[in-house]
């Protein structure tokens, strides 16, 4: 297992965010946030609603362009790159509200997740002969491995629109995994799930981290889950970073308690 020590993770940071800011009109969604995600860790971003968590993840995945600062992934600057180029670097993500391709089967959704790993162009696709066919079959193998991993073998031929909410979330995780990412951004993967589905999802997140060695950045509101599985936590409030450390450190931080529960709880 990975030995994750707190503090000074800069030596092996896979993702470094340096004084990144983003404003929408007059609203400063993210203010000068810096953080380092250690390679192979489970890194959680928490905070009350509107704290800027999703905005931060959107900047990492290139969906928003940061106003200032820098985001480096494995030494490569990400700001200014298009989302598709960032995906090619090996960064995959899931969405807060499911964004599957509902017209396609589970299998095709996963194959789409492998898009950047495949090469065939228009002509070879049209002919579907030789290299293109070989490539499709090869990548199908990997997609099937992920289907096995997530235990959705019986759903592979179903279109994703037909699936229950919890399963859709799982397929979306599968689509992200199909990219063989080195960094996986999960935006509230357990939102709206019941206890059992949540436990399953936590298991998958832990397994992905342990088996594939994927670094995971997690946004989640369920504090129980976050405190249990995170190696490192950053707390945002109104766009600012108010705490940064291991679960125990963050839990005891007065600024965090103030943000979540209000100042009066500190006096008790």
């Amino acid at each position: 297992m990975l030995d994750v020590s707190n503090g000074g993770g800069e030596s092996d940071a896979i993702l470094s965010v340096r004084s990144v800011a983003k404003s929408f009109g007059g609203v400063q969604a993210v203010k000068e946030v810096s953080l380092d995600v250690e390679r192979g860790s489970i890194f959680s971003i928490i905070g009350p609603n509107g704290a800027g968590k999703t905005s931060l993840v959107n900047m990492i995945s290139g969906f928003y362009k940061a106003d200032q600062g820098s985001i480096t992934f494995d030494g490569t600057e990400l700001i200014g790159k298009r989302p598709s180029q960032i995906a090619e670097q090996g960064i995959a993500r899931t969405f807060q509200n499911i964004a599957l391709f509902h017209g396609l089967t589970v299998l095709d959704n996963l194959m789409l997740g492998r898009h950047v790993r495949m090469k065939s162009g228009i002509l070879s696709s049209i002919l579907y002969w030789g290299a293109a066919q070989k490539e499709e079959v090869e990548h199908r193998k990997r997609a099937e491995e992920i289907i096995d991993f997530l235990r959705i073998t019986d759903l592979r031929r179903m279109t994703t629109g037909e699936l229950a909410y919890g399963l859709q979330k799982r397929v979306e995780l599968g689509r992200a995994l199909a990219l063989d990412p080195t960094l996986l951004l999960l935006d509230e993967p357990m939102a709206g799930m019941n206890q059992e589905e949540k436990e399953d999802m936590v298991r998958y997140v832990l397994d992905v981290n342990a088996e594939f060695g994927t670094t995971i950045v997690l946004i989640e509101h369920d504090m129980g889950v976050v405190m249990d599985i995170s190696d490192h936590i950053v707390v945002l409030d109104q766009g600012e970073k108010i705490a940064d450390g291991t679960p125990d450190v963050v839990k005891a931080d007065p600024a965090v308690i103030r943000a979540y529960l209000g100042a009066s709880h500190l006096q008790d």
């Binding site: 995945s61 290139g62 969906f63 298009r82 989302p83 598709s84 995906a87 090619e88 995959a92 993500r93 969405f95 964004a99 599957l100 391709f101 509902h102 017209g103 396609l104 095709d108 194959m111 789409l112 997740g113 898009h115 950047v116 495949m118 065939s120 162009g121 228009i122 696709s125 049209i126 002919l127 579907y128 293109a132 490539e135 499709e136 689509r175 992200a176 990219l179």
Partner: peptide, 26 residues
């Protein structure tokens, strides 16, 4: 052939969810 291979899937992805398509690298 076009529709069942990489290019055709990408077309459908753009039709269904263009933002998600861009994020997964299309």
């Amino acid at each position: 052939n076009l529709i069942r291979s990489r290019i055709g899937r990408a077309f459908i992805a753009i039709r269904d969810q263009d933002i998600a398509a861009e994020i997964i690298g299309i």
